[in-house]
Deep mutational scan, measured.
Amino acid sequence: LQLFIKTLTGKTFTVEMEPSDTIENLKAKIQDKEGIPPDQQRLIFAGKQLEDGRTLSDYNIQKESTLHLVL
């Protein structure tokens, strides 16, 4: 599923993930694309901070959802 990642600077980029992927996987993918170390990434969806060990489906993140990346 394609997700939109929006940064505080207003930049938006996309990543391609599976619902079974963990937040950790997502942070690694963001590191590949943007060079931001996972330990500096905080991801927010629907007002909640996402925890590394959980999956996208745990948070009911669907295709074309927008996640906010806070550094």
Rank of each mutant, 00 (worst) to 15 (best):
K6I: 13
T22V: 08
P37F: 15
P19A: 11
T7M: 11
E16F: 09
I61P: 04
V15A: 02
F4T: 15
P38Q: 06
Y59D: 01
K63V: 10
R42G: 14
I36E: 02
T66H: 10
A28C: 04
L69P: 00
E51N: 06
L8E: 13
K33G: 11
I36D: 03
K27I: 02
A46V: 15
L26S: 00
G53L: 06
L1V: 07
E24F: 09
I61K: 02
T7C: 03
I30L: 06
N25E: 05
H68N: 07
K63S: 15
F4A: 07
N25W: 11
E24Y: 10
F13W: 09
E34N: 06
T9L: 08
F13I: 15
L50C: 02
D39Y: 10
L3Y: 04
Q62W: 09
T55W: 04
E18F: 10
T7K: 06
L71H: 14
L56T: 01
L26F: 02
F45A: 03
L71C: 04
E51D: 12
L69F: 03
L3R: 00
D39W: 07
L43K: 00
G35D: 10
D52V: 06
T55R: 13
P19K: 08
F45Q: 04
Q41E: 01
H68V: 13
Q49T: 12
D32Q: 09
L8A: 15
D58V: 04
L8Y: 10
L56P: 03
V70D: 10
Q2H: 15
F4I: 15
E24A: 08
T14R: 12
K11M: 10
D58C: 02
S65L: 05
E24K: 06
L69I: 08
P38C: 03
P37L: 05
G35V: 02
A46F: 05
Q62H: 15
E16M: 10
I23H: 01
S65Y: 12
I30A: 01
P38M: 14
L71T: 12
E16G: 09
K33V: 12
T12S: 14
F45P: 00
P19T: 10
F13G: 01
K33N: 12
T9V: 11
R42V: 13
G47T: 07
Q2C: 04
T66M: 11
D52Y: 05
G53V: 08
L43R: 00
A28W: 13
K48H: 08
A46T: 08
V70F: 12
K48D: 10
I36M: 07
N60V: 04
T14F: 08
L26E: 00
E18M: 10
L71E: 14
T12C: 05
S20K: 14
I5Y: 01
S65D: 13
E51W: 03
S65G: 06
L69E: 01
E16Y: 10
D21M: 11
D58M: 05
L43I: 12
K48S: 08
K48L: 12
I61A: 03
I30K: 00
G10W: 04
T14G: 06
M17P: 02
T14M: 10
T7L: 15
R54I: 09
K27C: 01
T55N: 09
I44E: 15
K27R: 08
K33W: 14
L43G: 00
R42E: 15
P19N: 06
A28V: 09
N25P: 02
P37Y: 14
D58R: 02
Q41D: 01
L8H: 14
I61G: 02
V15S: 01
F13D: 01
T14K: 07
L8N: 05
L26A: 02
V70I: 15
K33C: 03
E16Q: 08
E51R: 05
R54H: 09
I36S: 14
R54V: 05
V70R: 08
S57I: 10
T9A: 10
G53Y: 08
P37G: 06
R42I: 07
D39C: 04
D32P: 02
K48N: 13
K11H: 14
L43H: 01
T66R: 05
A46Y: 15
L1N: 09
Y59Q: 04
M17D: 01
F45W: 13
P37T: 09
G53I: 12
I30P: 00
R42H: 13
L3W: 01
L50M: 15
T9Q: 13
D21L: 06
K48A: 14
A28M: 05
N60K: 09
L1G: 06
P37C: 04
K11E: 09
S57V: 13
G47M: 08
K27L: 03
K63F: 15
T7Y: 07
Q31L: 11
L69G: 01
Q31E: 10
T12W: 11
D32V: 08
G10T: 03
L8I: 14
T7A: 10
L56M: 07
I5W: 01
L43T: 01
T22C: 03
D52N: 15
Q40H: 07
Y59G: 01
F13K: 01
V15T: 03
G53F: 14
R42Q: 14
L71R: 09
E18V: 10
Q2T: 07
E51H: 15
L67I: 08
D58T: 06
E18H: 09
Q41M: 14
S57G: 12
K6W: 14
L1R: 02
K48I: 14
Q41P: 01
E16C: 04
P38V: 13
Q41K: 01
Q49G: 10
T9K: 06
Q62N: 09
F13L: 14
Q41R: 01
T55Q: 08
L8R: 11
A28K: 06
P38E: 12
F4C: 03
L26W: 00
N60P: 04
T14L: 11
Q31T: 10
A28Q: 15
L69T: 01
K29G: 03
G35E: 06
Q31D: 09
T9Y: 08
T22H: 09
I44D: 10
Y59A: 03
G35R: 05
L8S: 11
K33L: 09
Q2G: 06
L1E: 04
L56I: 11
T66E: 07
I61M: 07
